[in-house]
Design a protein around this nucleic acid. Structure first.
Length: 159
DNA sequence: GCCAACGTTGGC
DNA sequence: GCCAACGTTGGC
């Protein structure tokens, strides 16, 4: 038996590309196109079905956490790496040895309001959270359970 | 659109 | 294995 505590994550998406509303409209979304090794490793090694995800809109007005998603399928090879027409095509990837994998995400809830980056930064309980640290560009980040719970509460309070 | 921060690539 | 050049991310 290999039970494991649920883990928590933050995943960024540009809303022009794929927003929380887009996620709400699908049963399960293959999170293709991640081309960063650390982010890939999190998906490949650490993300399990049922893990909860803070859904973060980047390059948005404003940027911030907009809702909750969950992992609906564990990692498998990213088909776009083999597709010459895709902008995610990787000539060094082979079917025998795929470089890139991805999980699938499902919609859980949308917050009543965006918890933007400034508000995250202004919350002393989130001081150690990765997303508010300078230069933190990783599109998939682990989140402490305490931070996850705190962010989840924020939309019900005044900014 | 600017630019700081960071990751990747490739020459040596 | 170093490191400069280049590309990307993402806030502002």
């Amino acid at each position: 038996m290999s039970r494991r505590a649920k883990r928590y994550w933050l995943m960024k998406s540009e809303p022009d590309d794929f927003s929380i509303d887009d996620l709400e409209g699908v049963a399960s979304e293959p999170w293709t196109g991640v081309r960063n090794y650390q982010a890939r490793n999190y998906m490949r090694d650490d993300m399990k079905v049922g893990d909860e995800v803070l859904y973060y809109h980047s390059n948005a007005k404003p940027s911030g956490v907009v809702g909750i998603a969950k992992v609906s399928k564990e990692a498998y090879p990213d088909a776009t790496q083999f597709d010459k027409k895709s902008k995610y095509f990787d000539p060094k990837a082979t079917k025998e040895e795929p470089r890139w994998v991805h999980v699938e995400l499902a919609f859980v809830k949308k917050f009543d309001r965006v918890v933007d980056l400034a508000e995250l930064k202004g919350n002393p309980k989130l001081e150690e959270m990765l997303v508010i640290k300078r230069g933190q560009r990783l599109s998939i980040q682990p989140v402490d359970v305490e931070h996850f719970r705190e962010v989840k509460k924020m939309p019900t309070k005044k900014a």
